[in-house]
Design a protein around this nucleic acid. Structure first.
Length: 704
DNA sequence: GTGGCGTCC
DNA sequence: CAGAGGGACGCCACT
């Protein structure tokens, strides 16, 4: 009983602290007042207020605030950005008192296990880390668990280390069952906070041994990502960067390359410091970054961290694959490639590797002497699609090469590879979502990448028929309609753009009508096609040159086209100009929900890097805000699907699209739920629309 | 390991 | 003058 109330109080305090931090900052900013903190508007009792002060001490709030006040304000000096100062000149790690050598505790008997459980249970939060035999949760075996409840101390429990050879003995260790039984209450107690480094992984590992981790409070990887998106977020790099600590490398305990051994074969005496360090560093990183990021902690708490738990479920679920369908496609593609290859070699009069851009360039532009050759950066002949397309009229070979290219791409990347990535235990593919790599805030997907499955070409689209629903289930695909253009309308507040979306107009046709100054009825197919390219070009900061190349028109025509567009949608240009000003001033741009994208080169004297930074500054708030919106949709939808009791579950995310696997009898209900959830994430100045469809496979679910 | 290319949004 | 479309990942050839 007393424990529970303590935990509840703790939770309340954290919530209060979060609010108080913000309000204190405001007060401090306006009045430059020192502590104590103003708690106006917060309804907390005296005892809690005391506790709150303690908590501030704990968080070194005073130091944080002092830093905040010392930082030159953007408005005052008008050039150097506060954030750049924070990031590049922060000397946090050197200011802190030196950390004493870490004490490592090996848990290999009942007594030490008892001590650990006691330490965990009495803590308000602890770091947890798992050591396993694989990076893929479904094939990983749990080898050991490590914990830290405070800086300077790490615990490690080996559970399935093995003898490396016949001469060595199996190390003494507790049984997995005994360990899990002892730890389960603490791990599943939502009142005790958990810290992790890439907690999405540990969540799945723990789930595989029947533990449902609760009380997840922070992920150092996600905190670091919020601090500086796009920078490395592996633990070694973070320890160097924030704690000035050099980690024991995985290679130094497990070896590298072909000689690398799995962690269960690492001797326990070597595993102990490595594993204990993982947990202890995680603990310290979380504490450090929570302080550093006080004003962005909400993004971590309310978006990135809950999303990590959603992604863990999606990865764990995986997607069913129709293997023989893919094998059939492979064989069809293979035969076509073979015959095309023969034909090409015949025409060329020599056998060469048609997959080698280098050999192809020499053949086309030297042996055959075709015109229009361009060099790549490295001086090779460029043989990219657009170049071959121009040559296709003059010569048969480039035309055939284009066909081969497209087919071998489909075969090697998709139809041949996907079956190899099916997990033998589940019979499904379990992609891995990376939440902390992109600069804009998008997710990425790998092993396999399921965010670039073909859809445009007819042959490629066939591959989507291999992504099937489980028996008695249906796949539901829901995608946001024109989300980035809608965000452009929202941010720019352009009257006509908003009006077009409010009317539910075909936005490309509307742009075509505007640019060509004709009524909507007179918009031709080609006008619409051009307007569509311009619409996307605007989002990406395309130049007149790029547009002319895309549309096959002259540069001056393209220039007029763009100018007319801006004349028709004047607020769009104003928004772009304002965004660039802001980017130059503060060194970063921000999305709807506060994800920052740094554009350091925006004031560069190098024209090319500056232009690049400018395009990023325009595009990032749009791309990144779209990412924000779907992240929130995923968190909300995950919650709703779980509580619906339907058994429907999210499987995939492709930037503006969600794929849900749903038991047949609930499809109608869940479609409604998905649409409502996606459209109600946030209220913009234009409607947010999600198109939803369903089918037995991903192809069928994309009829719209 | 790097560069070229191609797939997606 | 050169380069002139944002963000990813994966395959292949080549060094």
């Amino acid at each position: 009983m007393p424990q529970t109330s303590n935990k509840m109080r703790r939770e309340n305090l954290i919530q209060f602290a979060d609010q108080a931090r913000l309000s204190y900052k405001l007060v401090a900013l306006e009045e430059h007042t020192p502590l104590p903190v103003s708690l106006e508007g917060l309804t907390i009792g005296e005892p809690n207020r005391e506790k709150l002060c303690e908590l501030f001490e704990l968080l070194e709030f005073r130091r944080l605030t002092a830093e905040f006040l010392d930082t030159p304000s953007t408005a005052a000096n008008g050039q150097l950005t506060t954030s750049q100062t924070d990031i590049h000149e922060s000397t946090d790690s050197t200011e802190q008192p030196p950390i004493p050598p870490r004490q490592d505790i090996l848990v290999d008997n009942a007594e030490s296990l008892k001590l650990l459980v006691k330490a965990l249970t009495e803590s308000s939060a602890f770091a947890v880390d798992t050591e396993t035999t694989s990076l893929h949760p479904h094939q990983a075996k749990l080898v050991g668990l490590s914990f830290a409840v405070k800086a300077g101390e790490g615990w490690y429990i080996p559970v399935s280390h093995r003898a490396r050879d016949l001469l060595s003995e199996t190390p003494r260790q507790l049984s997995l069952d005994e360990v899990l039984n002892a730890l389960k209450p603490a791990l599943e107690d939502p009142g005790i906070g958990k810290y992790g480094q890439n907690i999405k992984y540990d969540l799945q590992i723990l789930r595989s041994v029947g533990i449902h981790l609760k009380g997840i409070e922070a992920d150092s990887m996600l905190l670091a990502y919020i601090d500086e998106p796009g920078q490395p977020v592996n633990m070694d790099a973070l320890a160097e960067k924030y704690l000035n600590h050099h980690c024991i490398t995985y290679e130094s305990v497990a070896g590298k390359g072909a000689k690398q051994i799995t962690f269960d074969l690492v001797p326990v005496d070597q595993a102990l410091p490595y594993a204990a360090e993982d947990a202890e560093i995680t603990f310290r990183l979380v504490q450090h970054l929570q302080m550093k990021l006080a004003n962005q902690i909400r993004r971590h708490n309310n978006i990135e961290l809950p999303l990590a738990c959603v992604l863990a479920d999606m990865e764990w679920a995986g997607t069913q694959i129709h293997v023989s369908w893919l094998q059939g496609l492979s064989s069809v593609f293979g035969k076509k490639i073979e015959s095309l290859e023969k034909h090409i070699h015949q025409l060329a009069g020599e056998a060469f590797n048609i997959n080698s851009p280098k050999q192809l360039g020499v053949l086309l532009f030297e042996t055959l002497g075709l015109e229009g050759g361009k060099r790549t950066k490295s001086g090779q002949w460029a043989t990219a699609q657009d170049i071959l397309e121009k040559l296709a009229d003059e010569h048969e070979i480039p035309r055939l090469i284009l066909q081969v290219r497209s087919l071998s791409k489909l075969k090697s990347t998709y139809t041949d590879s996907l079956p190899r990535l099916i997990n033998s235990h589940t019979g499904r593919v379990h992609t891995s979502y990376n939440q902390a790599v992109t600069t804009t805030g998008r997710l990425s997907s790998s092993d396999p990448n399921l965010q670039n499955i073909p859809i445009r070409s007819e042959e490629g689209r066939e591959i989507r028929k291999a992504f099937i629903a489980a028996p008695e289930h249906t796949l539901i695909a829901a995608d946001y309609s024109q989300i980035e253009l809608r965000l452009m309308a929202h941010f720019s507040q352009d009257k006509d753009l908003i009006q077009a979306f409010a009317n539910g107009a075909d936005i490309h046709a509307a742009a075509a009508a505007a640019v060509n100054q004709v009524p909507l009825e007179q918009v031709t197919g080609s006008m619409r096609r051009h307007a569509k390219i311009i619409n996307f070009g605007i989002l990406y900061g395309m130049s007149a040159f790029g547009l002319s190349k895309q549309l096959g028109i002259s540069r001056s025509e393209a220039k007029v086209f763009i100018e007319t567009y801006f004349a028709r949608y004047p607020a769009v240009r104003q928004f772009m100009d304002k965004t660039l000003d802001l980017a130059r001033e503060q060194g970063y741009v921000e999305t709807l929900l506060g994800h920052r994208v740094y554009v350091h080169d925006i004031n560069s004297s190098n024209g090319m890097s500056k232009a690049y930074a400018e395009r990023t500054a325009i595009n990032a708030p749009l791309q990144g805000s779209a990412a924000d919106i779907i992240k929130v949709a995923m968190i909300n939808l995950h919650q709703k699907l779980q509580s619906s009791g339907s058994g429907a579950r999210m499987l995939l995310q492709v930037h503006d699209e969600l794929i849900v696997e749903c038991p047949n009898q609930y499809v109608d209900e869940i479609i409604t739920c998905i649409k409502e959830t996606m459209e109600s994430v946030i209220s913009l100045r234009v409607p947010l629309i999600a198109d939803v469809d369903c089918g037995i496979n991903w192809f069928e679910a994309h009829k719209l």
